[in-house]
C-alpha cells in the first residue's frame, strides 16, 4: 500500500475520497491522540483534500493540525 495520491483520489466520488483519506489519517491521528481519534479525524476531513494529502506526507503538519483540533474541542467543551 503506497502513498495516497491526488490521481488515486480523482477516480473516486467525493464521499469515497473522504473515506480514503480518513482511512489513512485515522491511524496517524490515533498515534498522536488515542482517545479522540474518531472525532479529530472527522474534523480534519472537513478540510480541503489537497491539505489532507499534504498532512499525510508531513508528520509535522499533521501534528500541528491535531493539536489545533484538540484546542478547538477543549474550547467547545468549556463553552457547554
Amino acid at each position: 500500500q503506497g502513498p495516497l495520491t491526488a490521481t488515486m483520489l480523482s477516480s473516486a466520488s467525493p464521499e469515497e475520497q473522504k473515506e480514503m483519506l480518513g482511512e489513512r489519517l485515522f491511524p496517524l491521528v490515533r498515534s498522536i491522540q488515542p482517545t479522540k481519534a474518531s472525532k479529530i479525524t472527522g474534523m480534519l476531513l472537513e478540510l480541503d483534500n489537497s491539505e489532507l494529502l499534504h498532512m499525510l506526507e508531513s508528520p509535522e503538519s499533521l501534528r500541528s493540525m491535531v493539536d489545533e483540533a484538540i484546542g478547538v474541542l477543549q474550547a467547545h467543551q468549556a463553552e457547554e
Partner: peptide
C-alpha cells in the same frame, strides 16, 4: 486567529481498524 476546524464535525469511524471503546 480563529480555527477553521469545526468541533461539531461528524466522527470518522474507519472500516479497517477496530474501534477502541
Amino acid at each position: 486567529r480563529k480555527s477553521t476546524l469545526n468541533p461539531n464535525a461528524k466522527e470518522f469511524n474507519p472500516r479497517s481498524y477496530a474501534q477502541p471503546k
